[in-house]
Amino acid sequence: MDVVRRNNVTVTGNPQGRTVVLAHGFGCDQNMWRLTVPALADDHRVVLFDYVGAGRSDASAFSEDRYASLDGYAQDVVEVCEALDLRDAVFVGHSVSAMIGVLAADRAPERIGALVMVAPSPRYIDDDGYRGGFGADDIEELLGSLESNYLGWSAAMAPVIMGNADRPELGDELRNSFCATDPDMARVFARTTFLSDSREDLKRVRVPTLVLDCTQDVIAPREVGAYVNRSIPGSTLVTLDATGHCPHLSAPEATNEALTEFLAGLK
């Protein structure tokens, strides 16, 4: 199997530098890192990829079984690391990818030497003393909306539903201008993302870890960032003055600064 093709792996930056793997979260693809890459490229080798079902990954590699748990995605990360024979790389994961990075580092400790968790959440649903920010009902509503395909339909979606064999360019256009991908695969990714509970996995992290959260993030509130920080021994928490769930887009300078400072501090 060609992992590089499957996950649309791109390698850029300084080949002599330490490798930094940038992993996108639910809802987008490697394009999310466009404001991050320039800040790292001079001193680091930068690896980007798309999860199967996102961006320009090989959709034929999709398996509902494999990707029904975060382990399936973590296995993909390990395979990407193996395909490039990465050693001691820094894994930067956004949102659900932060947790995928935790699982991958546990599986392949020799390949992942440090973690950066951007707006992570080990558990989205509130649970007996834990505050994830969402009720079970909320998540059900999101998944229900995704299942009925309503959310995120663009104005041009109807012809796509009806099959657009006579206008293939329409599909391409949607793909290119959207991070949104195959609705069925996005549905599986959403279910896996929002129903997982990875709190126990945090305790097993043994590598230097930076946790980045935002002052205003409806998806990963500050309590959650603090929880992750507390659960990972020796981790560093930096709260960015940023709104929303994507500080690398809404506050790129602050994000890059925290990131480069952490990278510089690694041995």
Binding site: G27, G152, F178, S250
Partner: peptide, 19 residues
């Protein structure tokens, strides 16, 4: 709605920032 919020944060806002 909550679903809309999540969609906004994961798709809408990042795309708006990028595009």
């Amino acid at each position: 709605t909550v679903g809309g919020k999540l969609y906004h944060e994961t798709h809408f806002a990042p795309l708006l920032r990028m595009q």
